[in-house]
Write a protein that binds this DNA or RNA. Structure first.
Length: 404
RNA sequence: GGACGGUUACCCAAGCGGACAAAGGGGACUGACUGUAAAUCAGUUGGCACAGGCCUUCGUUGGUUCGAAUCCAACACCGUCCA
């Protein structure tokens, strides 16, 4: 790849919300790449991750994929785990104050976090760092100096603080530290490039660049990526909102979850979490828009690609077959969990005891709604006695085999 | 330190003495339909009870009342403003 190609490759998927800023960053990136080539010095590229949860979902992988691209071009990638910033909790992506995390929790999460990240990143070429390493050493004096670079007004113009201010909701003092700490990370890491989502715009473009300049360094270049919506297609993917697609799951589940996104979210997924080329993505979007491919088939292709990217092609194919059999043909799956009832297998009791249903009242309701099937036939009598072995189904996709 | 406001089911939020197991949204679940677990429409969404009855739930603990999510008191937690 020549420099121009590299720049467009690396800028792919970015979202600055302002063409001028995009232009400026692309130019800075080009310069920095040229410099790197000239002196044979790889760029130092970093992205920070909040170890609030140990469960990564595919939304987290958007930035990792970008890091991977830098890796492929021979640059040095630093994977930072925000063990210290997690003590505050990033106020960026929420309108509410985030709860604080203890050092111990953060450390525990961090380990499995890095492990999962290596499904995307090249383990050999990735430097993992914890920001407690340097942030815990900052003195109050340092903090005062750092803070003197910012005005309260700068913080208050940030949308999420602004909103809370306007709504007369609390904006805590310590929340202001977050951006400063993240900026200090960039300085300590001597970062050339920092990758992050649009919610990191202020932290990367304002805080980090200011602090680096203050310390006499060249400010880092921000690669700001779009935010992946959750399976609801509306808001940012997040575990707490329950609209996430976890990494630690089965290929079948991942495939199914991708299939559940609304049609309008397909383009975003194609752009942010596939390995497809720009040309392929654009072709895909065009075909969907013009109705050249059936939206269902388009989504199937998308699901297969995404599943393949996190597992492998073969597993993705199997997940696809599984999906077709179970949901399109309505077949019962092969491996159904078994359950052996204690006493007499009365339907109502079995449903609750096996954990298929939470309470007897709920079981009754489901039966009334024709939601419970025995060997494919809707059950009407909650008190009927089953004759094992028999397959009991709740809804479309919960099965259990009753054995004696 | 002072003045106000808040705490309701999974989440947001109404209710401000009886018709409250508690409006409305969201979410979740079921059914119909479909192109899938999308969209749309309908229904369900505290527990127990082989029926319309009982039990538990509106921050906590007491109190007033035939009767309290609703009134009073104390306490706890949260927030805003003034110092």
């Amino acid at each position: 790849m020549n420099i121009d190609q590299q720049v467009s490759y690396l800028m792919r998927g970015t979202a600055y919300g302002d063409p001028a800023m995009h232009e400026a960053m692309a130019n800075e990136l080009r310069e920095r790449l040229l410099e790197s080539e000239k002196y044979g010095k790889p760029l130092r590229v970093y992205c920070g991750y909040d170890p609030r949860t140990s469960d990564l979902h595919i939304g987290h992988t958007v930035t990792m994929r970008k890091l991977r691209q830098f890796q492929e071009l021979g640059h040095h990638v630093i994977f930072v785990i925000g063990t210290y910033t997690a003590l505050i909790g990033d106020p960026s992506d929420k309108d509410k104050l985030r709860q604080q995390l203890s050092t111990e929790e953060a450390r525990l999460h961090a380990e499995s976090y890095a492990e999962q990240a290596f499904r995307i990143l090249d383990r050999e070429k990735t430097e993992v760092r914890y920001n407690a390493e340097w942030l815990s050493k900052l003195t109050l004096r340092d903090m005062i100096h750092l803070a003197s670079n910012f005005t309260i007004q700068q913080f208050l113009t940030r949308e999420n603080f602004r909103n809370r201010w306007d709504n007369e909701e609390a904006v805590y003092f310590h929340e202001l530290f977050y951006a400063i700490m993240q900026g200090y990370d960039a300085y300590m890491l001597d970062a050339d490039v920092q990758v992050g989502g649009t919610d990191q715009m202020f932290n990367i473009m304002t805080a980090a660049r200011k602090i680096m300049t203050y310390y006499g360094k060249k400010p880092n270049i921000g690669i700001i990526l779009g935010i992946l919506p959750g399976t609801d297609g509306e808001v940012k993917m997040s575990k707490s909102l329950g609209n996430h697609i976890p990494l630690n799951t089965t290929p079948e589940d991942m495939f199914g979850k991708v299939m559940s996104i609304p049609d309008k979210a397909m383009a975003g997924y194609a752009r942010l979490v596939t390995r497809w080329t720009v040309e392929k993505i654009e072709g895909f979007e065009r075909a969907v828009e013009k109705g050249e491919i059936h939206p269902k088939d388009a989504k199937m292709a998308l699901a297969e690609e995404i599943t393949g990217a996190f597992f492998d092609e073969e597993k993705a194919k199997m997940a696809k077959d599984h999906f077709i059999n179970l949901f399109q043909k309505g077949e019962t799956p092969e491996d159904i969990p078994e359950f052996k009832p204690q006493g007499e297998p009365v339907l109502l009791d079995v449903l609750v005891e096996s954990g298929l249903v939470e309470s007897k009242s709920q079981a009754r309701r489901l039966i009334q709604q024709n939601g419970v099937k025995i060997e494919g036939e809707p059950a009407a009598d909650p008190y009927q006695v089953l004759e094992p072995p028999v397959i009991v189904q709740v809804g479309k996709r919960r099965f259990i085999k009753i054995v004696s």
